[in-house]
């Protein structure tokens, strides 16, 4: 491919190729603080290629694929090329990663222990992890938490944080312009803007830590804290994991230990400040 960059995020290395220069230039800028992996062997290849020959030049349209791909992946506009590259990396992890149990969750660390937050898109887990990362916590990841099958620790996967719609303004204010990517208007998930994690999150991306608390956040409701039973947690996490089935018994063992080992709550919140206060309180009370 004509344009390429190799990035390492936590334990995974990606070789990203593109038919167009723009997505690679944007990645190179936003990932400039990450390790330089040029000329290394990558775990995964990601390709941003034209949906057909004419679409390289004429109303450019990106087909996201690579070592692992989906035949029916929706084409994306070149204006959303950065998002396409991020989705391409996510796709490789979701379909191809086997070295840890992948949880579709955000995670942050404090005092050597990890807070894991899981929920559907729009639950606020991403925004919450980004905000906590600016307020004394170490940001570990907004999309995937990697659960080690042997130690039971959570490994960081701190790629760019993908902020959507109303979350953009909230986080923009907190982190400032230099750490923000281009505003991508009108994607399939609305407006999206990427945020570069703080330097400490990137510098410490090889440091794992044991989990301490699991939360199921839900944005847009009056503040409430509810208990969640272990059986329900287990089921929800199997659904929130893309490689649980592929890992077989080791995945089952690791997930069982994770669910049994830490307290969990569902929390509803109307805004970021309320959520942070709730999180701090639950964290203080956790064993």
């Amino acid at each position: 491919m004509r344009h390429a960059v190799t990035l390492r995020i936590g334990p995974a290395t990606f070789r990203i190729g593109s038919a167009w220069p723009q997505p690679i230039a944007q990645l190179s800028r936003l990932y400039s603080a990450y390790p330089d992996m040029a000329g290394h062997i990558a775990d995964f290849t990601v390709r941003l290629q034209p949906t057909n020959m004419a679409r390289r030049w004429l109303r450019p349209s990106i087909f996201i694929t690579g070592d692992h791909g989906l035949a029916d992946a929706a084409p994306m506009s070149l204006a959303h090329g950065l998002l396409a590259a991020e989705m391409g990396m996510n796709l490789q992890m979701a379909l191809g990663w086997r070295r840890h149990l992948l949880l579709h969750a955000s995670s942050v660390e404090k005092d050597g222990r990890v807070l894991v937050m899981t929920g559907e898109s729009g639950s606020g887990k991403s925004t919450l992890s980004a905000l906590l990362g600016e307020r004394g916590w170490r940001f570990m990841g907004d999309e995937f938490a990697l659960l080690d099958l042997i130690t039971g620790h959570i490994l960081p996967f701190p790629r760019l944080v993908s902020l959507k719609n109303s979350a953009i303004a909230v986080v923009e204010q907190a982190v400032g312009e230099p750490r923000m990517g281009p505003l991508l208007i009108g994607t399939a998930k609305g407006d999206i803007r990427h945020m570069v994690p703080r330097a400490d999150a990137v510098a410490r991306m090889d440091e794992d830590a044991p989990p301490r608390l699991l939360l199921f956040p839900r944005f847009g409701h009056a503040p409430a804290i509810r208990p969640v039973g272990q059986a329900e947690i287990f089921m929800r996490l199997t659904q929130a994991s893309t490689n649980y089935v592929a890992l077989g018994q080791p995945g089952f063992t690791a997930l069982t230990r994770f669910v049994r080992g830490i307290p969990a709550h569902a929390i509803d919140f109307p805004d970021g400040d309320t959520a942070i206060a709730m999180v701090e309180e639950l964290w203080g009370n956790a064993p």
Binding site: G39, I41, A42, T45, D67
Partner: peptide
């Protein structure tokens, strides 16, 4: 070399 390895792995997966 590393570039050949990347190509070999990509071809083997494809």
């Amino acid at each position: 070399d590393t570039s050949a390895w990347n190509g070999l792995l990509a071809a083997a997966r494809a």
